[in-house]
Design a protein around this nucleic acid. Structure first.
Lengths: 248, 248
DNA sequence: CCGCGTTAAATGTCATACAATTCAATGTCT
DNA sequence: AGACATTGAATTGTATGACATTTAACGCGG
């Protein structure tokens, strides 16, 4: 079969869209092998490099994976939640950094969603969620931890909480919200006093979750949200003051 | 400058990651122009097709856009909420269809998040949110509406509710969750009785929002969630019955 | 000063060749 | 006969060079 393309837009885009449409429609099942690059370039009447550019576009979206060698080729990928997390996180991170979203707005979004998950997690959390959170909390109490490592542990702690809701779709959605804030949090969390306060709140969160105390968990998360916003406000005040001094 | 690459993985992947890292780190600012393909192939000591494959990967993620002609080239894209929203919908849709996520799980995620927004929306909604929801609700009561149009209106209604929370980050996250479910909802909502029940619930939601009655709004949304899950269960029972008959 | 063609720079596309990788068939030795 | 090395073919990855297309800027003439 030979498929014609309109010369309107770039060929590699059209080819990528044609293949993506087939994948979404299901006529290319998960795990099935696409025609070889030579066959595709024949089918679309384009050169092999052009086909390859189209395939790279799809590969960048995790829609296909390629293997070399005999009986190699491009295969339709089953998009796992883990794969999707990554894209979600980088996109959300860039969205926040590129669109001048203030920390208060980002915090509100993140904690609003997280508290909603908390209600479910209080009912469904399992031992391994608590174990992960306990381990991270221990790390956070280590004073020698670097700022970035502390934030990374903070993220892991909260993601375990979200996972406790036992709903993979929720975990996927929240991954972006929680993880995307890490760069912002890196600017905030600094001194030992702040850390102590945060780990104390984490203690409350963890024990509330352990006791399946949904209301207590929600209060603790709300307190953490309020404290985070306070810290953000301080950071901004310092920054504004510095700017005023610089411009003077 | 010449950058060395390890021969471990594919070159185009490494180049794409190197450039992406620069964008995320901010050393390539939004709107700035990347070196030309010839310069990049020189910098990384690879051929131009390889550089192009790397750029196509980045273009597929909306990280860059390219323009032809003099003073053309590849430019760092400002990721808009609209762009990101597109990608999130296709990803979320594929996730749901490829991973056999049951409707209950998807519904739970969607309404859990939406109820969280509702609490904020009850406090912050403005007249134009109510106006949009009222208009959509009127459409939904028109019996001649097609199934798809009804669902589209349903989505618009709920997006207006989410927008009422007055938090763009929240709107972005929720838009994906609500919209990605539309294909699933299309299979559910069918007959006039179901529609009447749904619009009645929408009536309750709207008036609760109008009266800034957060608790009532939450109850109404919970009822709608429960009803949706019921409908989904019916659909599945019918489907299973049909399958059993077919295999018999 | 304005309009218009020319030109140069950049991406888009093509054709071809070769390298690297993987699997399978084949053949050989024990 | 069976295990193991060898070869070969299929496929993706990369390189090279060329041409086509598009676009902005420049210079020239009116």
């Amino acid at each position: 079969m030979r498929t014609d393309l309109s010369p309107e837009r770039d060929l590699s885009i059209q080819i990528a869209e044609a293949i993506r449409a087939e994948i979404i429609a299901g006529s290319l099942a998960v795990g099935s092998r696409l025609p070889s690059e030579a066959e595709l370039s024949d089918k679309f009447s384009v050169s092999r490099p052009t086909v390859r550019e189209a395939l790279k576009r799809l590969a960048a979206q995790n829609l296909i994976r390629t293997r070399r060698g005999a009986s190699g080729g491009a295969f339709v990928n089953r998009i796992s939640f883990e794969d999707a997390y990554e894209g979600q996180i980088t996109t959300a991170t860039l969205l926040l950094s590129m669109n001048d979203v203030d920390i208060e707005t980002a915090c509100e979004a993140r904690f609003t969603l997280e508290r909603a998950c908390g209600t479910l997690a209080a009912a469904r959390r399992e031992e391994h969620h608590l174990a992960r959170m306990t381990a991270e909390l221990e790390r956070q109490k280590d004073g020698s931890l670097s700022g970035e490592a502390f934030c990374a542990s903070d993220v892991a702690f909260h993601r375990a909480l979200v996972d406790g809701a036992g709903n993979p779709v929720l975990s996927y959605q929240l991954a972006g919200a929680v993880e995307a804030m890490q760069p912002l949090m890196n600017m905030i969390t600094v001194n030992a006093v702040d850390r102590a306060r945060i780990t104390a709140l984490h203690d409350r969160i963890l024990s509330a979750l352990e006791n399946r105390d949904a209301a207590g968990l929600d209060r603790s998360l709300a307190d953490l949200a309020a404290y985070t916003v306070d810290l953000a406000a301080e950071v901004r005040q310092r920054r504004d003051a510095r700017r005023a001094k610089d411009s003077a």
